[in-house]
């Protein structure tokens, strides 16, 4: 077999390990990320009520991407990094 030149940037193909999972949502700040698809805020309002009522969540941070069509900007990502868990509301 011949050698072939790769189209890939091999550095970015290294697998990334998932972040450690919290033992309980009540122990951490929970981020709720609205990617700004229509009604994402309505959906997350309901999720927040359910988390507080049924899962002992006390600390919630609401996050929002300016547009669903682009990656999250650095300030949104750094806020998300301070949370112990983040839920993302995708699609419409």
């Amino acid at each position: 077999m011949s050698d072939y030149v790769s189209p890939f940037d091999e550095r970015v193909r290294e697998p990334v390990a998932p972040a450690p999972r919290p033992g309980s949502l009540s122990e951490v700040t929970v981020g709720l990320l609205d990617i700004s698809k229509p009604k994402g805020d309505v959906f997350l309002d309901r999720i927040e009520r359910a988390l507080r009522a049924s899962h002992g969540v006390t600390e919630v941070v609401r996050l929002r991407k300016p547009t669903f069509a682009r990656p999250a900007p650095a300030d949104v990502l750094s806020e998300a990094e301070r949370c112990g868990a983040v839920l993302v509301a995708l699609a419409d």
Partner: peptide
Amino acid sequence: PVMAEVTFER
């Protein structure tokens, strides 16, 4: 989406 560096070679 993988944030790859695009070079002339690739």
